[in-house]
Design a protein around this nucleic acid. Structure first.
Lengths: 195, 195
DNA sequence: ACCAAGTCTGAAACTTGTTCCAGATTAGCG
DNA sequence: CGCTAATCTGGAACAAGTTTCAGACTTGGT
């Protein structure tokens, strides 16, 4: 069975439960100590699953953490939707939304570090999953613009905002960017969506 | 002796030679098979030093590959300087320069992959070295603008370009972005320097 | 209820980055 | 030259991600 096909097979209830237990355990460990603290043996034990089973559900630590990220992004998207950004211009709304997302991540810096490290370290083998994360992120940003049908140029702008977002996030997590710099860079990139 | 202080100590000739041999061996292995092909034992053997010595020169695989990147960036900067970009506007010159850099990396995609993976996976322990890479990159971009004294806004723009550059590079290396997308994103981000 | 196919477990083994150390070599100095 | 401190070597040992597998357990179909 191919990778794609496997994902499409519906899981039994117990399997769904296992999958959620694994994701929960991973997020828990990541929140405590970041990327390095997410050790496959510990995840397996915490989720009450054999190591081999963990690897059947998620073929690598990277896949696992990228899946955690998908999960968290969905939550974030739901939260953000509840209170739409208030800015006048699209750029202001994008920047506002991303800064809200940023503050959410600040509350769990270890978890953020684990997810983002996994995301940027991912190789071709996980590109489908990384794409999924990218699609969710794009959706969040496009939502924030409030535009119904963004033009090609605006989609380019959204991609640049996205690049900037992840890159500056890494820099902040590694202590290489200050809060002010994060804000400045996000606001600068956001300007492109008004073009 | 602190990290900083150690770097400042001048190396003997044999030590310089060792360091260069290590970097050469790493670049060679990286060029052949990318990040995974750079195995510390193999680097040590190819450079004809003991494993412990390799670790004395570069405290981790990440440090090693980031050092390779510094090296390559210096070369690139020199090459780029020889033929300055011809565009009318600063944004055009920046985009032109980065696309030239991109074509240079295309010629050695495995090497590029190894360096960029190391760069984005680096944690706090290597942030000084990553900063050094960032400074070199900034210098290349600022050079391309042709501006003598960039404003604060322009420096922000340069940082956004830099974020976009690395992020889209990763996406391309992982097969998630086409050549056209690379160009479009770089050109879009570059627009910010004209502001 | 029974069988075949698929899944899960527990444990060992393998890989590669990293650390450690005892003894050999080298460098700088008087 | 001879001494001392630093460096280098070879190799073992350790850590964590990944693979493998035999046997126990589940599940879906009959």
């Amino acid at each position: 069975m191919t990778e794609e096909a496997r994902a499409a097979v519906p899981l039994t209830e117990r399997q769904e439960a296992r999958r959620r237990a694994i994701l929960r355990a991973s997020a828990e460990l990541a929140g405590r100590g970041g990327f390095d603290a997410v050790q496959m043996r510990e995840v397996a034990e915490a989720a009450d699953v054999a190591l081999g089973t963990l690897y059947r559900y998620f073929p690598s630590k990277i896949h696992l953490l990228v899946a955690v990220m998908q999960d968290q992004l969905d939550r974030l998207h739901t939260t953000l939707r509840k209170r739409p950004p208030s800015g006048e211009r699209a750029s202001e709304r994008v920047a506002e939304t991303l800064m809200r997302a940023f503050r959410a991540l600040q509350r769990e810096p270890h978890l953020a570090e684990a997810m983002v490290r996994a995301l940027t370290f991912a190789d071709r083998g996980a590109s489908a999953e990384v794409e999924a994360v990218s699609r969710r992120t794009t959706a969040i940003i496009v939502d924030a613009t409030g535009l119904d049908r963004p033009t090609a140029d605006q989609l380019c702008a959204v991609r640049v905002v996205e690049h900037t977002w992840y890159s500056v996030l890494i820099a902040w997590l590694c202590g290489r960017a200050s809060l002010d710099q994060v804000r400045a860079d996000i606001e600068t990139a956001s300007l492109l969506v008004d073009r």
